[in-house]
Amino acid sequence: MSDRIGARFAQTAREGRAALVTFVTAGDPDHETSLEILRALPGAGADVIELGMPFTDPMADGPAIQAAGLRALAGGETLVKTLDLVRAFREQDQATPLVLMGYYNPIYVHGVQRFLQEAKEAGADGLIVVDLPPEEDEELCLPALEAGLAFIRLATPTTDDARLPMVLKNTAGFVYYVSIAGITGAATPDFTVVAEAVARLKRHTTLPVAVGFGVKTPEHAAAIAAGADGVVVGSALVDAVRSSLDGQGRATEKTVAAVTDLVAALAAGVRRARAAA
């Protein structure tokens, strides 16, 4: 299970660097452009892809990812189309791990077993579902593990040592450490505090630890990458999509490049982190 995820983190570890985990929203700004972006990400330096499944009420997300979701929904993106994107991506790329990220309701309404089967067949490697804490593991986490999909859990600054074992128990693939108590794309974290938190997590797990929330620039990415196994960037990338759109909110010839240029810069940041250290 989750061969691609494990293999990729093993590879970046051998290269002596952290993995760059990139988040984009499926169907943003439209389905076709979204597929182009997806296909261009590995070449630009993305090691792991998180593909956001749009939802009307993303309670853990800041304005950038909220807006990306609404752009996608306005363009007619659905869960079925998102799985089509995964399938189309996987036709051309068998190596890059792809993780679906979102909220539980669209999955629940689609049908848990049906979703797991379709996501696995399409070529997804794992799931991050924000509103399913370990207390609700029976809903999706355990069925996902059974279906051969990694269930990647978020650990946060409010997750204390007493709670951590429960959070890590059914986690697979990697652990996603949320750098701040807050929403995506908000304040820049204190990198010293994050490094301590990553060290604390590593005392409890052998899984790779990726850090996200508030990572916007190559400098931020480099600072995180000095100690973590992965760096997650999301809001900055969907903001790059937004900035590239025309007055009517449509994709332009700059859209794909806006994302890949930033990914390339972030990848360089991740690569120089430990070279400098």
């Binding site: 309670m59 853990a60 539980y104 924000v130 509103d131 399913l132 804490p133 207390e135 609700e136 859990r153 978020l154 650990a155 946060t156 600054p157 409010t158 997750t159 204390d160 709670r163 959070v167 949320v178 108590a181 807050g182």
Partner: peptide, 20 residues
């Protein structure tokens, strides 16, 4: 004890809020 009324209710929140 899980906050359920039949299948309804529960605690579908982000991990950050769970300890709270």
């Amino acid at each position: 004890e899980r906050g359920r009324f039949g299948i309804y209710g529960g605690r579908f929140v982000a991990e950050t809020l769970m300890p709270l």
